[in-house]
Structure formats: structure tokens, C-alpha cells
Write a protein that binds this DNA or RNA. Structure first.
Lengths: 223, 223
DNA sequence: TTCATGGTTCGGTGTTAACCGAAGCATTCA
DNA sequence: TGAATGCTTCGGTTAACACCGAACCATGAA
């Protein structure tokens, strides 16, 4: 009968505000130090340390020691995915923030979901790739031959992407748009290329801000 | 950056073992009464009532009053999806079931899901009924005429089943098999008949143990 | 070595909330 | 109408745990 606690133990970890803040701070895939996470959570370092050991022993976080710093990162994209799903649920149930202020607006337009593009722009990108036949239109999308050509021309090293350990394509549910956007190794590569092309001027935090030239370039290629 | 607590409040709700048990009991989409959920969670009705109001005011559950019963169901498929995602995560992180001992094995073979048969045997039963054309092959299966004849001969009072307030047939998702088994009034009637026929020797708890004669009879009729 | 910094472990305090007994409505059945 | 059932509200108890102050390791710099 005890098959509830199974999810309960994990959920309880996410249920503490301090820990939730830490995890959301890590959602973009960066690795942060313990003190950074403490300030993100708004607690003293000792308290943060306790939380971090808990998250680590539950294998939600990985740690990497570098000098006298300890860098924490999410143990995988699935953790970020669960967090996104919870955000979506929290939003639907209305227990939440009322989408005001320019920051929230910007967040809705384009943001970083783990390491790929999410929000309005993310959905547009995903739809465009499917519509043009660059990826298949299934639950679990695949890259097509024409897609390989197009993306190589776009500046992506397809061989490297397909050689990565993660799945190439992934349909990731967008919590603000309620539709899918592109995740996986390819999603990460696309975001990376956009950034190196100068389309995106601000990559700090989760908000992604497009330059005006990047904006029109994105429009031209994907809309 | 205060979008952490947002998810924290929802996650905290899922973080309590009693509530988690209730929600997993509802994952198949059925609606259960408050007392049923109390027993599923292993708590007294008063305690369950408190949990249910919390889940309801967070819009994770919907309630429907019918006579002096109150039926609770998940407020949408997205809730079930989040629960599934959490289960996946819990499984990956290894914070979970070790599936050792004969009890877990027996649980996987045949168990009681609310009041009907679940597990390996439950899936076999469901498939057999569909394959033989006794129920239709849709999302929401229906009893056919040949099905009525067969089940009457099997010893079930079909008129009573079809006169019950609950739906007759229900495709109920099996958490160990990841496929559907038979729920609803008919599912309950089938289990009841099997028990009264002596096919099942131990009906205590959730584990259902088949007698050797019952085992071969089940095999003959449904495999 | 000595000092400073990043992290941790160790007590003690305070708040939260799950739990149950008992009593209270509401609905159905006899 | 009275009895039984399903569910809820109320009060008090208990256990868990987040939080911080203080002291304690480790690493790197002076």
C-alpha cells in the first residue's frame, strides 16, 4: 500500500520554499556555488548546506568540487522537466502570480528552459521546424535529411549533436504556452548557435532578450 | 526570482504521504469517495477530509456530490501527468521500491485496485475480453451482446451490474503493467465472482492470491 | 605559519501541520 | 419519525523540520 510515499519523498523535497528557489535558480542548467544558492533561497549558508545535502542524497543535484568552491547543478534534464511541469500546474490552478510587470512579459516571450529556447519564440521555432519538414511530426520527433541540411547550413555541427548521449530531439512542454517546444541536444545546439550569432543579447538568468537584428533574423528564418 | 514558492506550494501538497496516496489512487481517472480515499491513504476520515479540502482548494481535485457521497477526481490529465513525471523521477533517483521479496512479486501478478482485479492478471483479463469481442475496443469500452451472454454464464448478474450507478466498464490504467485493466461495476463483479468461485484464496490486503485450481481455471477461460 | 574564505556539523528554538477523539450536519433508509 | 451512514468541523497532542548562532574542517593566499 505504500506506493504513495515514493512520490511523496521527492515531492516533499520540492515542497520547501528554500529548496524550490534553489532548484528554479538551477533550471537553466548552470552550476552554482553553495553560497550563491543560499542567497537565491534567502537563507543562511548553514541552512542552505542542509538543504543541499538533502537534494544531493536524493540525487536531484550533482556536485562538483573546484578549489574551495562546490558547484551544484541539476542531475539531469528530467529534473528540470518536472519543475516545468509543476510550474504549469501551479499556474493553471491559479495559486500563483498574476503575470504582471515587464519581466514576466519578457519571460513569456523567450526564456531558457534548462539549456534550450522556451516561451513564445520556442514554440514558434518548433512549429516552424515541423511545418518545413525538418523534423517529423510525432510525439517523439526525429531529424529528417532536409533538416540535417538546413541545420548544418544554419551553423550547427549535426554530427556532434547526433553523437551526444542525450536524445537529439525532444518535445518539451512549455508551461506558459501550453504547447511543445524543442528540447534535447538539438534544442541546446540551436540556442547556442543563436547566441553565438548575436541574435540574443542577454543570456543572464532565465530571460532571453533578442537583439533587434536577431529578432528580424529569427522572424525571417522561422516565421 | 520568487517563482520558487509558486511551485513549492503545489509540491508541498504532493509531499505528504497521505495526500500522495490519495492522488495515486485517483491516477486512473476514476472518482472515489472520501472514505475510500481515507482507507487508501491509511488515515481516519477526519484527517482525510482535511487533506481533501486542501487538495480541492488548490484545484488539484474536483468534487461531485451524489446523494450522501462525495466523489473526488483529479481536476485534469495534467495532474496525472505531473504525478507520472514525479514517479519517473523518483524511480530514476532510486529513492524507491526495491521490488524484493515475494510480496512485491505477488503484488505485480495480481492485486486489488479499489474493488477490481489489477496487475498482470488484470491486464490479461481485459485483453481477453476485448479479443473475444465481449467488450468494445474503445477508450471507453462497452459491453456487447455476446459479452452479456458470456458473463451471465460466468455467473454475473448483468442486470444488477448495468443498473448500478457507476459506469459498467472502465479502462483503468495499471501502474505496474502500464496498460489498461477492467474497472467499473463489471470489473468489481468479475472479481467478486472469482472470489466466490474459490479462484482466489487470499483477498486480504491488496495482494490477490490464486488457488491452483483457480489459476488453471483462469488460464482456461481467459488465456 | 598565519589569516581569510567557503562549507560543514552541532545544539537549541520555534513553527508548522498531521493526526485522532469527539461532536456536529446532512442525507438516506426503515 | 428515528436510526444509520457519509462527511465535516473543532480542540488538543505530538512529531517533524526549517532556521540560526556558534564552533569546526578544508582550501588558498599572505
Amino acid at each position: 500500500m505504500k506506493d504513495g510515499p515514493l512520490i511523496a519523498s521527492v515531492a516533499a523535497l520540492l515542497g520547501d520554499p528554500a529548496r524550490a528557489n534553489m532548484l528554479t535558480a538551477l533550471m537553466d542548467g548552470r552550476a552554482l556555488t553553495a553560497t550563491e544558492l543560499a542567497s537565491a533561497a534567502g537563507v543562511m549558508p548553514q541552512t542552505a548546506s542542509g538543504h543541499l545535502t538533502k537534494l544531493r542524497s536524493a540525487r536531484l543535484l550533482e556536485v562538483e568540487q573546484q578549489g574551495r568552491h562546490r558547484y551544484f547543478r541539476l542531475s539531469g534534464p528530467d529534473v528540470a522537466q518536472v519543475l516545468e511541469a509543476l510550474m504549469g500546474l501551479a499556474q493553471r490552478t491559479g495559486a500563483v502570480r498574476v503575470r504582471t510587470g515587464p519581466r514576466d512579459e519578457a519571460l513569456r516571450v523567450a526564456r531558457r528552459c534548462y539549456d534550450h529556447l522556451a516561451g513564445e519564440k520556442g514554440v514558434i521555432l518548433f512549429d516552424s521546424l515541423r511545418r518545413q519538414g525538418f523534423i517529423t511530426d510525432s510525439e517523439k520527433p526525429c531529424l529528417t535529411d532536409t533538416g540535417r541540411m538546413f541545420l548544418t547550413q544554419f551553423g550547427i555541427d549535426i554530427a556532434a549533436v547526433e553523437h551526444a548521449r542525450r536524445p537529439v530531439c525532444r518535445a518539451c512542454l512549455d508551461w506558459s504556452e501550453r504547447r511543445h517546444h524543442l528540447g534535447g541536444a538539438l534544442g541546446a545546439a540551436v540556442l547556442q548557435t543563436m547566441t553565438s550569432r548575436g541574435w540574443i543579447v542577454s543570456g543572464l538568468g532565465r530571460v532571453l532578450l533578442f537583439s533587434s537584428s536577431g529578432q528580424s533574423a529569427f522572424q525571417a528564418v522561422f516565421a
